[in-house]
Design a protein around this nucleic acid. Sequence first.
DNA 1: CGAATAATGACAACCGGTTGCCAAGCCTTG
DNA 2: CAAGGCTTGGCAACCGGTTGTCATTATTCG
Lengths: 340, 340
Amino acid sequence: MATTQPSSVDRPPTIHDIAALCGVAASTVSRALSTPDRVNIRTRLRIEAAAAELRYIPNNQAKALSSGRTGAVGVLVPDITNPFYFDLIRGTQLQLKAAGYTQLLVDTEESDEVEASTMEQLRKSADGIIVAASRLSDEALLAAAAKMPMVTMNRDVSGVPAVLIDTPSATSQGLDHLISLGHTRIAYMAGPVTSQSSTRRWTTLADAAEERGVEVRKLGPFAPKTQSGAAAADAAVHSGVTACIVFNDLIAIGMLQRLRERGIRVPEDMSILGCDDIFGADFCNPPLTTIASPIEQAGRVAVSMLLAQLNPLQGGPSRRLAVMPTHLTIRGSTGPARVP
Amino acid sequence: MATTQPSSVDRPPTIHDIAALCGVAASTVSRALSTPDRVNIRTRLRIEAAAAELRYIPNNQAKALSSGRTGAVGVLVPDITNPFYFDLIRGTQLQLKAAGYTQLLVDTEESDEVEASTMEQLRKSADGIIVAASRLSDEALLAAAAKMPMVTMNRDVSGVPAVLIDTPSATSQGLDHLISLGHTRIAYMAGPVTSQSSTRRWTTLADAAEERGVEVRKLGPFAPKTQSGAAAADAAVHSGVTACIVFNDLIAIGMLQRLRERGIRVPEDMSILGCDDIFGADFCNPPLTTIASPIEQAGRVAVSMLLAQLNPLQGGPSRRLAVMPTHLTIRGSTGPARVP
DNA sequence: CGAATAATGACAACCGGTTGCCAAGCCTTG
DNA sequence: CAAGGCTTGGCAACCGGTTGTCATTATTCG
């Protein structure tokens, strides 16, 4: 009979239903739920009780539209299937959830275009974004950061808050490790040219090599996938080096497989030193000597920095830069240089 | 001077800006952009040109609020860091993006409560959900499926569309493999009790074992993490079996590590047969014999089934069930039974 | 050439909240 | 007891689109 039934309707309850039930205005309900102090304690309790009874769940879309705040944070990674990002994603997810935010995860497929258009999309649907290993130019990143709160990871652009994982310094530590094992012919297997991590690492490594009077040659670039390991392995063998410092563990693991196929023993004939300590680095064959990074922690820090930007009230001034320490983890893939 | 400037404002353009620029009503712009046929071709072109000029990007929140369609699909996985789900996530992401949908990825942390509350949340912010390896009860799942379009993965509840990965049948194939290698004392290392996959697999396995006249005992349950592998390995050794069929590769890899620590050789002293063929299964030591699953493909199929529900117009009737075939991949972790 | 029909676009309500503004009510204080 | 201040809650506009209704115009047909 009734055109509208207060509680038995299938449609999810709204603040209007609560308002009707309590005999107050919808705006009062809104205030009771979002700014409890602005409302009389008794009214508030009544409203809260009604909300609970109706199993009210606020509509995020509507909230976002009217308030401008979405309660969501975009997380952009170049490749979801790269284990490196697993821990990162978990770190951001945990920290965001703890702060009451939702994570919008997007795989940008290593493409600057996808990355740019995603950012444009997210401008309306997220309060801020975390961009891991951006493939964008400095200018593009800076422009994007001007439009919405942003934190980059492993990408340092002046003016954009960033979390950096300090692999460069551990890389020279890795170089020392190899030198102390007697290696003199060493290669750096480079990652994508657009990867600032790879560039930074190579620069540090080249400097360190010069200081120590050893020669390190750069091979590559190689795509950050295990499949690229075959090409990397072949290049390394062909170049006559006895040890490789590899852009990341994914390529390093691929190299391990290829070298095994070719009958080249690791570490007897060739030492391999990876980077990141991803899932799998400890149980591959042989277990990978690598530069361990606090990836999950880095994700959390990135979220903290972003949230500091979003809510400037609480907490001190937001940091511009966070540098995460790394350390060399020695396993079985590095050993004494073969005597020629 | 002017309180409102048509195009130089920093605020993103809306359909109203376009309408003003073209001298038409906002509703016409809306129609031109979403139902092009309902609008004169010349007006449409003018509007499209204006939209391009203004770099107009529709506001998803507003779209969702007014139309009820969000253009987003929730994907719920129990554990983001489990490599099994990487490929799944990638599969769903690719297929969703191809269909113009956004993926909302949520890690439910193996918790039925988180899962339930997430579903409730998503009811407003997503058009449908894909639930992998749900921890919910049949009733809860069915109730949730009644409220919004849903596809489950590796979880068969009558009335809810599902994608199943047919590991049970490959499991008996795996059993045959072990029997042919001379194993007679075999264990099944079970996964979580709430996992239907594990239960189904065990049922099939027990039947197959009886048929073939061998004894397979069930050990566990074990959490689907590499760390659980240690307990699993110890349990296997203690029980005196010579071969293990393991719930998943994660546990199997953990067992491999533990057995190595304890000086038990694989496959000479103990054969290990995993499940899923996750990242790492091919390069662990020894490489894992496992039941390979088309995980990414399963993700795509799940999306297709969900989209068929969402847009019943195009395409035939939506399937209730999809069963993905699997196959046994033999690597180095299984071998002839040790002669006592 | 007039009428029927279809195509087109404007108007306005609506989705579910948020928020500025204002009035009423309460209490405190002189 | 009156004046002033603060608390409280209602009204209504607004966020940016979608969509049903309807008037106008263009087109086609008899």
